[in-house]
Simulated scan of single mutants.
Amino acid sequence: MIGRLLAALTALACSTSPASPYFDTGNSLYELCQSPRTYQVCLGTIIGHYDMLLANGYDCGPDNQRTKQQIMDIVVKYLKDNPAERSDVAALATYKAMTAAFACKQLPK
């Protein structure tokens, strides 16, 4: 019994990703966005990043002309096209993707 538990714990420890200083990296977000099972988590995470961008004083143009799906598609495409940047914090990928797609600018305070 203890041997089985030890084997299971060892397998689990070996199968986890390397430690990251962030909750979500671009790699983990990209992985979430590849599966229909985790589509809602992907969408919610990206929209949360986008909402924080706006809450921190950025203007990304008329939001009534874009959908959540469009925002998610832009971020996923950014992650796909920039694999070298996926080890960074996931919110940074959303920032870069939105800034490139919609010319987001920080409003003066």
Rank of each mutant, 00 (worst) to 15 (best):
M1R: 15
M1T: 12
I2F: 06
R4M: 07
L5H: 09
A7K: 13
A7D: 04
A8V: 12
L9W: 05
T10C: 12
T10N: 09
T10I: 09
A11M: 09
L12G: 11
L12P: 02
L12F: 08
L12T: 06
A13M: 09
A13E: 05
A13P: 04
A13R: 11
A13I: 03
C14S: 12
C14T: 07
S15A: 14
S15Y: 04
S17Y: 10
P18Y: 00
P18Q: 04
A19W: 08
S20C: 00
T25A: 05
T25V: 00
E31W: 10
S35P: 11
S35C: 01
R37P: 00
Y39N: 13
V41H: 15
V41F: 09
C42H: 06
C42Y: 06
I46A: 05
I46M: 02
I47M: 14
I47Q: 13
H49C: 08
H49S: 07
Y50A: 08
Y50M: 05
D51K: 15
M52C: 08
L53Q: 14
L54S: 06
L54N: 08
A55C: 01
A55W: 02
G57K: 10
G57P: 05
G57N: 05
G57Q: 02
D59Y: 09
G61S: 02
P62W: 02
D63Q: 15
N64T: 10
N64M: 03
Q65T: 13
Q65S: 10
Q65V: 04
K68Q: 11
Q69G: 11
Q69T: 13
Q70A: 11
I71V: 15
D73T: 08
I74K: 14
V75E: 04
V75K: 07
V76K: 14
K77W: 00
K77Q: 14
L79H: 08
K80N: 08
K80H: 10
K80A: 09
K80P: 00
D81E: 15
N82M: 00
N82D: 01
N82L: 00
P83A: 03
P83V: 03
D88Q: 15
D88Y: 10
A91S: 15
A91V: 11
L92H: 12
A93H: 13
T94H: 03
Y95C: 01
A97H: 06
M98A: 12
T99N: 11
T99L: 01
T99S: 11
A100Y: 02
A100P: 02
A100L: 11
A103C: 02
C104F: 03
K105H: 08
K105A: 07
Q106G: 00
